[in-house]
């Protein structure tokens, strides 16, 4: 099964929450990263099947990290996590190859829908 996930978010609370949702639904969270730089590093070492990527993060934001990951692995599957009001960032991310986006606060069903679609 291709369901190894890398969670990228600068807030521990959000990572915990996502991890909780994912693990309860048969995903394996193989790594967590708290900024874009870490995300790219962890992606490189872990090669997860799926990445959930927060947009606003210190060091390197989610869109930049997405682009870097896409350069490493053009087939990378990345889902953006966005807060309200980051419309243009989300669109940038989709242009840069993000598969989908989910909006905070997370609705469990929606998150799962999006993730399941992404690993199909």
């Amino acid at each position: 099964m291709s369901n190894r996930v890398l969670i990228v978010d600068d807030a521990i609370f959000m990572r915990m929450k996502l991890k909780d949702i994912l693990e309860k639904n048969g995903f394996e969270v193989v790594a967590e990263a708290q900024n874009g730089v870490e995300a790219v590093e962890k992606y490189n070492t872990e090669r997860p099947d799926l990445v959930t990527m927060d947009i606003t993060m210190p060091e390197m934001d989610g869109v930049a990290a997405l682009k870097a990951i896409k350069q490493l692995d053009p087939s990378a599957r990345v889902i953006m996590c966005s807060a309200m009001g980051q419309q243009s960032m989300v669109m940038d991310a989709i242009q840069a190859g993000a598969l989908d986006f989910i909006v905070k606060p997370f609705d469990n069903d929606r998150v799962l829908q999006s993730l399941n679609k992404a690993i199909k």
């Binding site: 966005s82 309200m84 980051q86 419309q87 989300v90 669109m91 989709i94 242009q95 989908d100 986006f101 909006v103 609705d107």
Partner: peptide, 15 residues
């Protein structure tokens, strides 16, 4: 109805 980022969603559809 509970779609939050309508713009981005519409963008994805159009895309």
């Amino acid at each position: 109805k509970d779609c939050l980022l309508k713009g981005a969603r519409a963008y994805m559809v159009i895309n």
